[in-house]
Design a protein around this nucleic acid. Structure first.
Lengths: 108, 108
DNA sequence: ATTTTTAGTTACTTTATGTAAGTTATTATA
DNA sequence: TATAATAACTTACATAAAGTAACTAAAAAT
C-alpha cells in the first residue's frame, strides 16, 4: 500500500483552487482591481456564485473589497498580497496549457 | 472595461484541474502506478467519482490504465508523460501552501 | 458450495451551480 | 415630478455534480 498521508496545507490549497471559478477569478484580478460587473462579464460565472466566491476569498484573505465613496458609490475588488502570491501557480498552469493543450481538444 | 479575453488553452487547463479530486488524484499518482482501491483509500473520493475521473483523465491522455494479466488480474493506473508534466504546477501549489496556509485555517 | 477480493456500476440522496426575477440606492431623462 | 437606468447584490427555484450504500461479475481460497 502506498498510504503516504497528504499534507493538510496542500489539501487546503487544492480545495480552494479547485472550487469552480476560483482560479479564473484570481487570474482575472491579476489584471488589477475590478468591479463586480466587470468580473462577471469577463468570465462566465453567474452573479450568485460570484458573490459567494468573493465573500469566501475575502474571508480567506485573498481578495480585498473596497468601497470607493464616489457618487454613485463604486465597489472594487482586488488581490491582497496573499492573493498575488498565487501568481506563480497560475503562470505554471498557463505554461503547461501552451505546451500540452491541443487545438483539437479545446471543445472536448 | 478590462475585457481581455482569457486564453482558451488556459481555460481548458483550469477546467480540468478545478474538477473536484482531479488535482489530488494526479498528485497521488506522482508516487507511482496505483490500483483503484489504493487510490480510493488514499484520498477521500467515492468509487463512483473515482471511476468517472479515471475515465476522463485517460481520455485526456493524462492517465494510463494497464491490465496486468496476473491471476487474479490486476489493474494499474499511472501517469503518462502529459500527466507527469503537471508536476511543476503541483509543486508550486505545495510551496504556496507551506508559506500561506496557516494552522488556524486548516479547519475553515 | 460458499465466501472473499477487486474493480467497478446502479439507484437514490444531498450539495453545488445556473437562471432569472427581485431589491436597494443613486442618478439620469422626459 | 415621475419614470427609467445602472450597479451590486439577493432570493427562489431548476438542473447538474458529487456522496452513499448496496449490488455485480469474475476469479481464488476455504
Amino acid at each position: 500500500m502506498n498510504q503516504s498521508i497528504i499534507c493538510p496545507r496542500f489539501e487546503k490549497a487544492v480545495s480552494l483552487l479547485s472550487q469552480r471559478w476560483t482560479t479564473l477569478l484570481i487570474y482575472q484580478l491579476l489584471n488589477g482591481p475590478q468591479r463586480f460587473g466587470t468580473i462577471q462579464s469577463s468570465i462566465a460565472i453567474s452573479g450568485r456564485v460570484l458573490s459567494e466566491r468573493l465573500k469566501e476569498l475575502e474571508h480567506q484573505g485573498i481578495v480585498k473589497r473596497d468601497v470607493i465613496p464616489e457618487t454613485p458609490v463604486r465597489i472594487e475588488y482586488s488581490l491582497t498580497e496573499k492573493g498575488f502570491s498565487l501568481e506563480p501557480i497560475l503562470k505554471e498552469i498557463e505554461n503547461w496549457s501552451q505546451v500540452w493543450v491541443k487545438k483539437e481538444e479545446l471543445d472536448t
